[in-house]
Design a protein around this nucleic acid. Sequence first.
RNA 1: GGCGCGGUACCCAAGUGGUAAGGGAGAGGUCUGCAAAACCUUUAUGCGUCGGUUCGAUUCCGACCCGCGCCUCCA
Length: 494
Amino acid sequence: MGLRLYNTMSSRMEEFAPLVDREVRMYACGPTVYDYGHIGNFRTFIAVDILRRYLKQSGYAVKHVMNITDVDDKIIRNAARDGVTVQQYTAKYEKAFLEDAAMIGIEQPTLVRATEHIRQMAEFVAKLEKKGIAYRTDDGSYYFRIAKFPQYGKLSKKDFSGMVDGARVDVDEYEKDSARDFALWKSPKPGEASWETVIGRGRPGWHLECSVMSMQELGESFDLHAGGEDLVFPHHENEIAQSESLTGKPFAHFWFHARFLLVEGEKMSKSLGNFFTLRDLVLKGHKPSSIRYLLTSVPYRNQLNFTFDGLRQAAVSVERLRNFRSRLETGKFADGSNDEMQALGKETEERMRAALDDDLNTAQAQAAIFEMVRRANIALDSGQLRSNDGPGLVSALNSFDEIFAVLKDDDLPKMRHVLDWAKADGREEQVSPELRDLLRSGQLPDAEIERKISDMKAARAARNFQLSDSIRGELTAAGILVEITKNDIRWRRK
RNA sequence: GGCGCGGUACCCAAGUGGUAAGGGAGAGGUCUGCAAAACCUUUAUGCGUCGGUUCGAUUCCGACCCGCGCCUCCA
């Protein structure tokens, strides 16, 4: 039993088998760094991250490459507008993107940048032109001649066979042989960035960069290519056309596409006022772990409705898991072992594996872990959980977290970092009271809290509940949650 | 218009030709000095609507209604 994935190319589920045994070469289309990343972007990147993590957990060596699109029309225009270089313009957003990705638990792939491959892209176009597949227009732009690639449309299932080739179609400023022919290389515009290359001055088309960089890093044929569903056409279709018409070999074997998310039931857009960057959400006081959890809770091929209610629910779910782990780690159990608990850990790991093998069904994997938590909590409550049972359950939790990455309680420092950024960036008015409130709990040092906790213990030993409660009140006000258990007091930050 | 996806309890959401995972919320309860955490009970004879196939359909087929995506660079 291995991983089965939906392949956009074949429109069906397929057994995933890499070209080279035990090694996966995958390429994911990354961000265009012209602004801060929004939650829609991160849904896709998290879906790819889940795939990457699960491949690793399944024993594959994963070579995962992602591009940073640091040159495109919008970037060039904005840079020209601001009077800075393309590099100066994108540096800020690339840095922000990488910080955000790390904040939300995305493992960093090997990064490749478009601006560092301009020469190779021009050479690629030159080769295509030599084969008669690319052609130059009077203004110095280059286009891909779709008529030369009969399979064009095979990924997006579009039929271009009825197209009349050679009929000259007028498309405002450019002269193309066919309206469908797409730009490989664009001629320079006055006042905007361009590069001098073997095919002349200009700038690369967007589709070209992914073909060139993926094949350079992973070879002419590789295992899997990922991106958001919107990239199926034309971006990925064009990559296939460019790459396969040049090499004559199959390009990527699996095509992995993440579905768009909705926000409060509607497509996210600035005009609807439901457009959120990751940083917007943190400034509203939402934890990165809540956001990650919510984004992983619906399988990647289903539409996910992102709501603030859902975000709060996700926070509670994560809390439940963290509480459970803390119970396991800090509790004292009688010696011995319990057969049911011994089996539970293994059973849960198997259920999670079966769920993820099934086209990364994250919802079912989560259901499996919660089932375990409930059953183990019952055993904990009744004293049936023994000292030898802990490790198996912790191991299942760890397997879960290798994929979902929400158990580590490091939200507050991450959120503080966003707060600092907001201050430095003049966005102080966007900082919500909720965020400020939350971050206060980080201000009391551990030693101070421990001291108050031992005061509480002393007061309780003397049955001075009034004093104990007032100390607890102070801690609660400072954002510290205090739990009194049978023979101990546990605390954590809100 | 062409191609594709989906409509499951108060909310989010998985799933199956044989009688509905999981999470959240609400209500009641157990435990507890109180609180928190945890646990228990409870909330869809029902899975958009209407037909059909079948011993049996939420699951397959058809029609319709509604939502969503792609169809010139938005993940």
